[in-house]
Design a protein around this nucleic acid. Structure first.
Length: 271
DNA sequence: ATGTCCACCTGCTGGC
DNA sequence: TGCCAGCAGGTGGACA
């Protein structure tokens, strides 16, 4: 479910609930997620005060006043519910804070993961250390993307899904960004002209920023912390629209399969 | 090194 | 109604 914008939306929701609060109870119902939740996970968090909630790529990072950081990855189906009225299947972990609010981590497919590590080692964590630049950060722009793609012989679609090239994109936003930049997903990454790569970098920033903007609005009512797809899905230009009309040229949106995943594109607009 | 593919797991949909 | 194939927002690790 979650690519960078959804994780950012979740991060904001978590931050509002946790920041400055003391964690009074952590309950793990199931440890065998993508990787086992460490045995000392509960102990290291219980009694700690949350100082900040940040994000790196698709990881939400819960910083506590013990020089530790909890890593939260939602995988494909992970969600976080705030003060749920009733339990659901696949509720794996619960966090209770000192003002009574509860956050519940639910993940049907268990591709998500939870870990805890020392703050000083955070960026050396095996799951974080190889990540490429944050697309919305100051370290990402056209020339940087160009450098990352130089010599790459994979398709641009595959390259953008590689978290070492740019961190946080997934299947939806890669499709959308390539459409905005009018680049065909099958193009060889390293062969794309400089000007197009620069347009692509901007498209990536634009589409992510817009999705966060719209996703964030669902949070205003305090309902979902959650990470359900926000309202941005109504703005999808190609993703999930096979057979429908391109919003630019009215031609049909097509679906192809690249590395066993669906890619959506307009073959007229994207060259 | 780089690129491609599989595996991990559950739930849902559409066709028969 | 049931069954089955195919699909789903991720990604580390095995392999060529």
């Amino acid at each position: 479910m979650p690519e960078l914008p959804e994780v950012e939306t979740v991060r904001r929701g978590i931050a509002r609930v946790l920041e400055g609060k003391r964690i009074v109870r952590v309950t793990v119902h199931r440890r065998d997620l993508r990787w086992p939740i460490p045995a000392d996970f509960e102990a290291r968090l219980t009694g700690a005060t949350v100082t900040a909630v940040s994000r790196r790529a698709k990881y939400a990072l819960i910083h506590i006043d013990r020089h530790d950081v909890a890593l939260v990855h939602l995988g494909m189906s992970g969600r976080i519910r705030l003060d749920p009225e009733s339990p659901e299947t696949h509720d794996h972990v619960e966090f209770v804070v000192d003002d009574g609010h509860r956050l519940v981590f639910n993940d049907a497919r268990r591709f998500g993961s939870l870990d805890i590590t020392q703050e000083a080692n955070l960026m050396h964590h095996p799951l974080l250390r190889r990540l490429g630049p944050e697309p919305l950060g100051n370290d990402f722009n056209g020339p940087v993307l160009e450098e990352m793609l130089k010599g790459r012989r994979s398709s641009i679609k595959a390259a953008l899904l590689d978290q070492q090239v740019v961190a946080g994109l997934g299947n939806i936003y890669v499709c959308e960004a390539l459409f905005l930049a009018r680049i065909h997903p099958s193009r060889i990454a390293g062969d794309i002209k400089s000007k197009s790569v620069h347009a692509l970098a901007q498209a990536i920033r634009d589409v992510l920023a817009r999705a966060i903007e719209v996703g964030g609005s669902t949070l205003r009512d305090y309902v979902q912390v959650d990470g359900e797809l926000g309202y941005f899905q109504h703005e999808w230009r190609v993703y999930g629209r096979e057979g429908e009309a391109c919003r630019i040229c009215s031609g049909g949106i097509s679906r192809i399969v690249q590395s066993n995943r669906s890619t959506f594109l307009c073959a007229t607009c994207q060259k």
